[in-house]
Amino acid sequence: MNHFPEAWGRPRDDIYGSYNASYLPQSRGGLQSHHQPTTHTQQPIVTGTSVLALKFSTGVVIAADNLASYGSLARFTDVHRLKPFNKRAVVGFGGDVSDMQYLDRLLNSLDVEENYTSPTGDAKSDDDRALVDAPLMSAKNLHTYLAKVMYKRRTDFNPLWNALLVCGLDEKDQPFLASADLLGTTFSAPSMATGFGAHLAQPLLRRVAPDEAATQELSKEKAVEAIKECMKVLFYRDARSMNEYSVAVIDQSGVELKEDEKLENQSWAFADRIKGYGTQTV
């Protein structure tokens, strides 16, 4: 105890040594030439919730709702979290929305650069592309790239606070689905879900597609149906979700993206059996 209130509640210099101010600017006794201490992302601010995806015999279906939450506040209701990269790759973003915007810009510039070498567009046939030796980037290539970006940023202790699902077709036009997260961890499975979806939707998706062999038998219609059902379950149980969502199907014919879907045939009959939260008195 001393007579300097500013020192109260701080570790005592005589016990712990003097405060390490190296991260502070010089004006505050530190070593940094900037005016502000260096800061890194400590937490996400505006967030998107789960992303779901499921492989089927000829492609992949992916979905995410259109909500961006600010804490528990449903702040933005028209945020599209599925970003098509080209005609055979789509990325779904969960987690921080500003980091999603950063990654989206990164992907945009990557796409522009990819098309420098030869002015070939999506409309062109693969025969024409083969002629100029410029194959279209596959979902697998894109996943590798994004996973490296995520890993680099976590290694800098400045992570991009996202959970990504990358899906589409690989170089051999086979369905591809894999994830990358803020730690740079990658994972692949016949069905995938990020965030709350990993707990609530993944078991339901695994019932539809327990293994790779099962996805070979799965039709597009069945897969879309399963994903829509899971979006509904998530809306029932995830308090950071919304009933409007985006869904994309990627197969040989390209990307079919719908960004203004609504949940259908909701039934809240189960709700009155839930006890223990909120304002219930019985």
Binding site: P119, D122, D127, D128
Partner: peptide, 20 residues
């Protein structure tokens, strides 16, 4: 030869090679 149209046109707003 290359061409570019509006988003509603044949190249969907992109600059690309005229199809073979």
């Amino acid at each position: 030869m290359t061409w570019v149209s509006a988003v509603s046109g044949p190249t969907k707003g992109k600059h690309e090679e005229v199809p073979k």
